[in-house]
């Protein structure tokens, strides 16, 4: 496993981050990756701790997000995976990249489409995780309406093109795909200048 910040300039070229932002992001990565085991890698427990502060609950979405960050499927995140994934969440990232990431997030079985059963599973699971209770009739009604809007080909599933059309009509569905914090990462983690490898 690669350790440490090996090539900030390469990562800056291949993401929306500047070299300084990559170095500042590495300060955040060090903090998160040393929370449980100080091994320069983020495991799922550390990811969950960083998100929720207290290790409180099972979360379908933490698992899905972690799996999407974990492009090498090793069960742990190196800095490169962390930086490349967070790049999609930058305010300057391409909307198409955000749409692609969000589609994969909801395509639980990774079949290339989001099926009705998956949507119902996500609604039921996330409502249960947050302690909310809606009757099955209400949930079915909401899912019917969602598919009326999204499933323009009427085949009972939402493909990538339909997902794109849906989110362009409902931009709120991409709200969580942009993190304003990433714009201010160098001021949030000014200590990166002490470890900088480059003259910016």
């Amino acid at each position: 496993q690669p350790r440490g910040l090996e090539d900030p300039e390469l990562l800056a070229r291949e993401t929306v981050f500047s070299v300084s932002e990559i170095e500042a992001l590495y300060e955040l990565f060090k903090r998160i990756s040393s929370a449980v085991i100080d091994d320069g890698l983020i495991n799922k427990e550390e990811f969950q701790l960083a998100l929720f502060k207290i290790n409180k609950k099972e979360s379908l979405f933490v698992d899905r997000v972690f799996d999407l960050f974990d492009t090498k499927h090793s069960g742990i995140l190196g800095f490169e995976e962390f930086a490349r994934a967070l790049s999609v969440f930058h305010p300057n990232a391409l909307v198409d990249d955000k749409i692609e990431f969000s589609f994969q997030l909801y395509d639980l079985k990774q079949q290339g489409f989001i099926e009705r059963q998956e949507v119902k599973q996500m609604v039921v699971t996330t409502l249960a995780e947050s302690g909310m209770n809606l009757s099955d009739d209400v949930i079915e009604n909401i899912i019917n309406k969602t598919f009326e809007q999204a499933d323009t080909k009427h085949d009972g599933k939402i493909d990538k093109e339909e997902w794109k059309n849906l989110v362009l009509r409902h931009p709120s569905l991409l709200k969580n795909m942009t993190l304003q914090y990433l714009k201010d990462i160098t001021t949030t983690f000014p200590s990166f200048v002490f470890h900088s490898q480059v003259d910016d």
């Binding site: 955040l28 998160i32 960083a50 998100l51 929720f52 502060k53 979360s59 379908l60 979405f61 997000v65 967070l86 969440f89 997030l105 909801y106 949507v119 996500m122 609604v123 996330t126 409502l127 995780e129 947050s130 909310m132 909401i142 899912i143 309406k145 969602t146 809007q149 849906l166 409902h170 709120s172 569905l173 709200k175 969580n176 993190l179 914090y181 990462i185 949030t188």
Partner: peptide, 24 residues
């Protein structure tokens, strides 16, 4: 009601990565 199933999912799942940037 204009509520979309995906709005419910993203709201109730707490899918919000801003926690990563907040100190304990």
């Amino acid at each position: 009601c204009n509520l979309n199933a995906f709005d419910i999912i993203s709201y109730s799942s707490g899918f919000d990565l801003s926690g990563l940037f907040e100190e304990e």
